[in-house]
Amino acid sequence: MSDHNGSSAPVWPVLRQFAKGDLFALDGSTAGSSRTESLASRTKTADRVVGSVCPYCAVGCGQLVYVKDEKIIDIEGDPASPVSNGCLCPKGAATFQLVTGSHRVSDVLYRRPHGTEWEKIPLEQAMDMVAERVKRTRDENWEDRDKDGNPLRRTMAIAHLGGATLDNEENYLIKKLFTNLGIVQVENQARI
């Protein structure tokens, strides 16, 4: 018999069917190939199932993320969720493609001033470069007091946008770090 990858020549089910006299193939138990016979849901083979939440709109549907060999093999609705009872909309149902798709870039890219192409640079180097630019821009554009002597303690030369797609913990660190650097123009989609 063949395995289900078809790596050896199969015995055609139709012949088996004839042999068993099941002419109209009404019974899969005789007509099924070995692949068919061993068919099972891939989620069953998962190493673990991880509780999650849909990342699209704000309804917050429950998701279950199935992981096998440290790879996501399926994402579907969490039936236990009172928010969604296991349902997902088309976007939620596409989450698997969102997080595993080939569209995702996994390198840090750098476009130098007046450059026409991206250049790959190491993550650590990029982090150093950004930190250095934040410091320089902050130092060069510090506002200590307004014209009436009121304290400002800030820089208006650096701004931030984003947050509504991020975690609370991330927003918290963003607000904490940027405020303490004197960056006040911290904004997100809530206003857009």
Partner: peptide
């Protein structure tokens, strides 16, 4: 009805000026 996964969160813990 908010439109992003944590838009409520990003006003509660605000990334707002």
């Amino acid at each position: 009805l908010r439109g992003h996964a944590s838009i409520q969160g990003s006003t509660d813990i605000p990334t707002l000026y």
